[in-house]
């Protein structure tokens, strides 16, 4: 009998706690598959964030550290420098990475730390109950922007890939979407590339996933997907911002 699909070895048997329609599970799986395919399970370590991804340390089947809010890139720096023979990634959401952890992500990228960063952007704080994120869209309602994000008052969403692309050191930066099956196949390629570059110690690699939060957006999963397609993708355009391996500078 031929096995055509199975649970990746890089995932534990712990069931995900994520809400229906959430895309964290998809992103976890893509990362785990790429680790399996690159044969890295015995020499990789991950750093989990604070936010909905907080329990990622239970789901990945290798050594994991749970970081303080926003500090995952600093923790990953410590691990990678202490164990240069290992491969290290962080898994972070938009509040963690682009608000409280802005300094850590910018400086880890700027040092060209040889780590991978997987960034889930769903434009909202999930774990704490739907507050405004640094990537919340203009006029988007959240529990802390109940009248819609007022850009005159609080500014525009931060485009992290574009921001990091102003730095010289990063090796690979790509934004992908998890909104459709076709998008997920593309996303898989980006994750695989980031992990492969990581395995080869090429430099700092960064993949942003545009995803949804049906629970806190208050939409059914399908409507959330549709909303994200119409509203998020025009503002956060998918694409390769940097790929030194392919000559994209």
């Amino acid at each position: 009998m031929e096995i055509i699909a199975k649970r990746p070895e890089a995932l534990t048997k712990e069931p995900f706690h994520y809400c229906p329609g959430c895309m964290h599970g998809v992103a976890h799986r893509l990362i785990a598959e790429a680790i399996d395919e690159n044969g890295l399970i015995n020499e990789i370590a991950g750093v989990a964030p604070v936010g909905c991804g907080v329990f990622a340390y239970k789901y990945f089947n290798f050594d994991m550290a749970e970081a303080a809010h926003g500090r995952a890139p600093a923790v990953a720096t410590g691990i990678k420098r202490a164990r240069p023979d290992m491969h290290v990634f962080t898994y972070q959401g938009d509040g963690d990475l682009a608000a409280i952890g802005t300094a850590e992500i910018v400086h880890a990228a700027n040092r060209g730390e040889k780590i991978s960063v997987f960034f889930i952007n769903n434009a909202i704080y999930g774990m704490t109950g739907g507050q405004m994120a640094p990537t919340t869209l203009p006029n988007m309602k959240t529990t802390t922007s109940p009248y819609g994000r007022n850009v005159e008052d609080i500014g525009y969403p931060i485009r992290v890939c574009e921001l990091l692309s102003t730095l010289v050191a990063p090796y690979y930066i790509e934004r992908v979407s998890l909104l459709t099956s076709a998008d997920i196949i593309k996303a898989k390629k980006a994750v695989e590339k980031a992990i492969r570059y990581n395995k080869e110690n090429r430099g700092f690699t960064f993949v942003e996933f545009i995803s949804t939060c049906p629970t806190n957006w208050g939409y059914e999963p399908e409507k959330a997907r549709q909303w994200a397609k119409e509203n998020m993708l025009p503002f956060f355009k998918p694409g390769v911002f940097r790929d030194k391996g392919e000559g994209v500078e």
């Binding site: 550290a65 600093a74 923790v75 720096t77 410590g78 691990i79 420098r81 202490a82």
Partner: peptide
């Protein structure tokens, strides 16, 4: 936090 990672 780098110390946390390295100590870990």
């Amino acid at each position: 936090n780098m110390v946390y990672g390295a100590a870990g």
